[in-house]
């Protein structure tokens, strides 16, 4: 068919490009913060908190959550074309708008993860708390430490899912419009969180733990990705497949897994006695998982905009 259109807008034609790398970064950082919240809570809740002992990541993990989240929110704010009206997000709640859920969700998540970070703060950093109010607040919250960790976990799952729900809600964009997308985004968030934990963990055993966790989730993610791709191929979203694929992510994840596999071969049971080479392998594989996660978000954002309901 020969098609000539007069009167198209550059932002929707020949394909949508409403969103760019800023939104991808927002989703990536938001996901990573969420995953980190989940993973750091796992560390704190596991073995009734024993695993967290002596591990600085049990504080730095929670602390990075609000920081990374802030950066993520900065990017989405940057993407808004009419920033001065941003307060309207909080004068409204729109039950069918994932973005509304997201803005409210993040608004609630932020204090939770911030408080969670505060209460996990070891004594040696107490002097960072400049104000008395903060100190009393932290003291008052000490008994609710576990609850906060649980809340942090729950919000982490919520936000992780949200990064996918936001996109999957668009019937107009078949590539995104998949029930698997929230799950895919959640596992991607979890891998990023686990990778981040693996990187910042001091104790080799903890590092190894998150590396192992990571491998299982990455494998899960790869499976979901395959399912998602199959779903795409049988839906209209498949139309963008020639110009887009998850190949790069498969590659990065595959290499990360290969590294870890190699690592596991050289590992004996006493994980704290791992050789430095193994630590390096873990760091590198975690970094690759992070890179893969970033690539995933970028491809997701751009590819979805290429697809169109017909």
């Amino acid at each position: 068919m020969e098609l000539t259109v007069t009167g198209t807008n550059a932002i929707t034609s020949p394909f949508l490009h409403a969103w760019d790398w800023r939104v991808a970064l927002y989703l990536f950082l938001g996901g990573m913060a969420a995953g980190l919240a989940v993973m750091s809570s796992i560390l704190r809740l596991k073995n009734a908190g024993k695993s967290a002992e002596g591990e600085s990541a049990s504080f730095w993990g929670p602390l990075w959550v609000p920081i990374i989240l802030s950066f993520g929110m900065l990017f989405i704010f940057w993407d808004l074309d009419r920033k001065l009206n941003v307060y309207w997000l909080y004068l409204t709640f729109k039950p069918f708008s994932p973005m509304s859920w997201g803005s409210w969700g993040l608004l609630l998540f932020f204090p939770v993860c911030a408080l969670n970070a505060l209460v996990t703060m070891p004594g040696e950093y107490r002097h960072w708390l400049r104000f008395d109010v903060l100190r009393t607040l932290v003291d008052r919250l000490q008994p609710h430490k576990r609850l906060l960790a649980i809340l942090n976990f729950v919000f982490g799952i919520f936000v992780g899912l949200y990064t996918g729900v936001l996109l999957s809600a668009f019937v107009a964009r078949p590539f995104w419009h998949s029930a698997l997308l929230p799950l895919l985004c959640l596992v991607s968030a979890l891998t990023a969180g686990a990778a981040f934990m693996a990187i910042i963990a001091k104790r080799k055993a903890v590092k190894l733990f998150f590396t192992k966790v990571n491998v299982s989730i990455v494998i899960a993610e790869l499976i979901v990705m395959v399912l998602f791709s199959i779903g795409l191929a049988t839906s209209q979203g498949g139309a963008v497949m020639p110009s887009f694929s998850f190949i790069l992510e498969y590659l990065l994840y595959g290499m990360a897994i290969a590294l870890v596999a190699k690592l596991l071969l050289v590992t004996d049971e006493r994980s704290d006695a791992l050789p430095d080479r193994a630590v390096l392998l873990m760091q590198v594989s975690a970094a690759m998982v992070l890179a893969g996660g970033l690539m995933f978000r970028i491809s997701l954002v751009y590819a979805g905009q290429l697809s169109h309901l017909v």
């Binding site: 034609s13 668009f170 169109h308």
Partner: peptide, 26 residues
């Protein structure tokens, strides 16, 4: 006056009926 220019509506519209005002952002 309420629009933040988040472009969710652009992504949501199956008819590509919308655009963002280049000067004002809505």
């Amino acid at each position: 006056y309420r629009c933040v220019g988040c472009k969710a509506c652009l992504a949501a519209c199956p008819y590509d009926a919308r655009y963002i005002n280049p000067d004002k952002g809505f």
